[in-house]
Design a protein around this nucleic acid. Sequence first.
DNA 1: CCAGGACACGTTTTT
DNA 2: CGTGTCCTGG
Length: 722
Amino acid sequence: MDVSHLLDKLNDPQREAVCAPACHQLILAGAGSGKTRVLVHRIAWLIQVMGVPPHRIMAVTFTNKAAKEMRERLQQVLGDASMAAFRNLWVGTFHSIAHRLLKTHWQDAGLPQNFHILDSDDQLRLIKRVYQGLTIDEERWPPKQAQWFINEQKDEGLRAAHIGEGHDPFLVTMKAVYAGYEEACERGGMVDFAELLLRSHELWLQKPLLLKHYQERFSHILVDEFQDTNAVQYAWLRVLAGNAAHVTAVGDDDQSIYGWRGARIENIQHFTKHFLETQTTRLEQNYRSTKTILDAANAVIANNAARLGKHLWTEDTAGELIDLYAAFNEQDEARFVVERIENWVRGGNPRASAAILYRSNAQSRVLEEALIREGVPYRIYGGQRFYERLEIKNALAYLRLLQSRDNDAAFERVLNTPTRGIGSRTEETLRLAAREQNISLYQAALGLLQHNSLPGRAATALRGFLQLLASLEKDTQDMNLASLVGHVINASGLLEFHQNEKGERGQARVENLQELVNACGAFKTDDSDLSPLAQFLDNAALDAGDAQAEDYEDAVQLMTLHSAKGLEFPLVFLVGLEENLFPHKMSAGTPEGLEEERRLCYVGITRAMHKLVMCYAETRRLYGSEVFNSQSRFIREIPRELLQEVRLKASITRPVTSKLQQQKVGSDFGNFGLGQNVRHSIFGDGVITQFEGQGASARVQVNFGKQGSKWLVVQYAKLEAV
DNA sequence: CCAGGACACGTTTTT
DNA sequence: CGTGTCCTGG
């Protein structure tokens, strides 16, 4: 068989990874080194050269987007001939694969067949409800915190029962909430995202025969973005792999930026210990960026300790120097960026080839305003996801009720949406009855109406709601998915409800509801025995719906550094390169936090193909007060010769307000300047390193050497200049 | 039920 | 500063 198409256009290390004999592999793939290509070609090699049947291969990704891309590229490489076999090859996210397992083996997993997936919104609501049952003070223990705690435990593979008995009030409370939450999920047949993984891991441990079946089936498991795996995912993988399967882990320890949500960078570092006789390949040739950009990225990341070690190189020319612009403030920064983009577009480049990357979402507004002012189309990535929008969740709740009236979360959600006179009083009565008799809210409603135990007005309203559900079900019986959904959003009154909503908001919601119908029309069902609606709802729970509302207008791309991972742009602006913002002050406190920020910076730099522009503002308005941050240490980690400072044009004058601000600084900070040596009655001598706020809230950061750095309120600190 | 005001809060995000 | 949430009064 001619396999040259699998090896063409591969460099030596890439080819080595693709053609490796059956073994464990760790592929350390630097940014822009052709990671996906290697993964896809390796799978094709396994099938076409090594004769591995496709059904014995599993490829795991983190995002739906990555899974989709891999499927498409596999299809290209394998060709249509392999299409039939292709269906047996499992490609999916950890979550979708776990979901598939639980759907298939629901009995063994101890779940009802129609178990329902909670998104984080649903999860929070449920936790709040658990609080009510336990009479826990929401003030003292914010439900958000409990949610975070529960997910963190699950990511580590821990159940409420695993949390030790102790006297720490925090742990005692959290354990109680976690246990109550587990019980509520169990009762309602609900499963959150982390539970999908935890539960399928437990399924294997508890059902050895089942595990054996899958262990014998999957001889090759490939995992993308391995640096992002958390503890359960890694454990899950190790159990599945057993002693026989060959595991290929592809990742880049330098691009691990999700430590804060449970990703364990150690997993990639420990891989060779757990999977013996691993062949390690380093993909270090970069096909994306100029030499200048790569040199900068390498220089920055070199400041991190405990790396596996990798040095990106390129055959590309040095290219242009990196521009560095010191803006007066965030307005000036935005103005500068937009002006640069306009020049770039005037030079014949598409707007979509330029991206503005920032550390935090709050920074986007000023940039947006500047783009709007100049009439430059832009697109912001991230933010509210399609299937998480209020109007969409309401529509989905009606659809879920069609499937099962006993879905309490859905019932509760739309009981009075659109408003139909069922108030909190009635709702409370329903909930109480349901809890007492251990039945669903729907069953409770039926019972209460039967026994006439509700006041007249409430009874009429509630009866109306139940009748609505009945007629929705009856009227949609013979409809296809799209007309069914169209009918439901109409007949439920949701569409009218949002049409009557004033302002652009209502308009957008109506459009989203219509988009939902479109999505149903385009939805491809598989031949499982689930109804199209059931399949669609499961899909909606696991897929954020990124592809929705895609418009193809050529637009400048705005996003956080996190969402930029995996993307590339000819022209990249990294803005807000200031201490306390990037590295963010919440993270800069610990060495691990700082290293993750640095990796984020590395990700940002390596997004750029031809030209990189970095900006920082001397002064920035944040949450209403003015902050003075020095330039980011990351700028200083880039060799000077790679940078060129952008000089101000004579026509640009300092904003008029700046003089006033300067005076204010003088008074608020008592004439202290950066670098001023000061003495504090307790901490001793130190040096001023930062300013923040004004008036009574004016604070300075002072580095007291051995005592560390501290933020002090100028008004109270009684600092003495020395 | 809605409007309006007080109040808290503000890093990154996928599934 | 701007936004989202919670509570109160009509």
